[in-house]
């Protein structure tokens, strides 16, 4: 029983968290939620989803930055991931109205 509990403890401790550097992301939505979404659509920078933005242009801006936006480097997000993200943004629907923050 003690051994079983220890094993369960070890499993819980090892609950998977996806590392968040180039080549480790689980997909575009994870990148959006962990990065882009803190500004875009959060009242800091314009919403990008639902606008059918040109993926090539989005990828270039994310890589090189824009007024008020930092450059995201290949060690954070590699070219393939950036390309996927930009295509996901182009196809993503307009989000439902965000819930008000809990006060």
């Amino acid at each position: 029983m003690r051994r079983a509990l220890l094993t369960l403890g070890a499993l819980l401790a090892a609950a998977p968290v996806t590392a968040q550097s180039a080549g480790q992301w689980q997909g575009p939505e994870q990148i959006w939620n962990a990065t882009c979404g803190y500004c875009h659509g959060a009242g800091v920078a314009p919403e990008l989803r639902g606008r059918k933005l040109d993926p090539q242009a989005s990828a270039f801006i994310a890589r090189n930055g824009a007024p008020g936006m930092p450059a995201f480097k290949p060690s954070e997000i590699n070219d393939a991931e950036l390309d996927q993200l930009a295509r996901w943004i182009a196809l993503a629907p307009i989000p439902a109205k965000a819930p008000q923050p809990v006060r």
């Binding site: 009242g43 800091v44 930055g65 824009a66 007024p67 008020g68």
Partner: peptide, 12 residues
């Protein structure tokens, strides 16, 4: 949210 200040003038 702090970086909303970029919207003050535009430009980075």
């Amino acid at each position: 949210q702090t970086f909303s200040i970029f919207n003050w003038t535009g430009g980075h």
